[in-house]
Amino acid sequence: MRTPHPELSPNLRTRRRRVLPGFGLTLGTTLLFLSLIVLLPLSAAFIRTAGLSWEEFWGHVSSPRVVASYRLTFGAALAAAAANAFFGVIVAWVLVRYEFPGRKIVDALVDLPFALPTAVAGIALTALYAPTGWIGGLLEPLGIKVAYTPLGIWVALTFIGLPFVVRTVQPVLEELEPELEEAAATLGATRTQTLRRVVLPALLPATCTGFTLALARGIGEYGSVVFISGNMPLRTEITPLLIVTKLEQYDYAGATALAVVMLVVSFALLFGVQLLQRWFFSPERHGR
């Protein structure tokens, strides 16, 4: 019955025989679709740019009009993601913890920005915030202009990014053990102390993830912004719009160079989300 120790047994290979069928077929299909639809076209942008000299590339991506568009795009996206992080946590909290009439409707409504085509959102927001619109008309006497200013872009991006934080925080909040809060209460913490020192830190990872997702979405957003921004070069022209403009002028090299910059930023953000998740859920962090 006794056999030699594993170390002594020569030549152990793992025989990869899979019990469930269809691995080759499904993996093949997946890779084929992925390559043809996503990877190959995306690589086209990088390869096209590789044909440019460094000076040409730098010229395309650092002209004053382009730099102004970066500043606006990232600034508005950051501000919108920050607003969503703040309000998103509150909305998620209210949806999970409080019973109130219409809770289910509000919960369903949060998905509206996912479901509503961006062009529709764009014209609706513009109609509302234009000086003649319902809300724009109210703000006009106060000297606040929303449509056709950076503030309008912020409004559109806040709308677009609204679901991200809510939908990442909500499940975490639902699964948060009530014992944590009860323990804090028995240790003499007031309710607000418990919220600030126990609950909010537990929601931080999800909030950061939602923030980054909203930021990434905001940076690339086009449809909802083009209507409300007014598209004035150097003032209210976002980077995706600039790409479209260059394309319409048949400046493929300029459009592609800008696209590469944006792709790098987007991939960095996507990678950042992955790192964030891994860091927050890493065993070392939980060991401490």
Binding site: S9, P10, N11, L12, R13, T14, R15, R17, V19
Partner: peptide, 15 residues
Amino acid sequence: AGLESPDATSDPDSG
């Protein structure tokens, strides 16, 4: 049951 396959070794009779 055949739901798992044993590792291959140098011994052809193994597994």
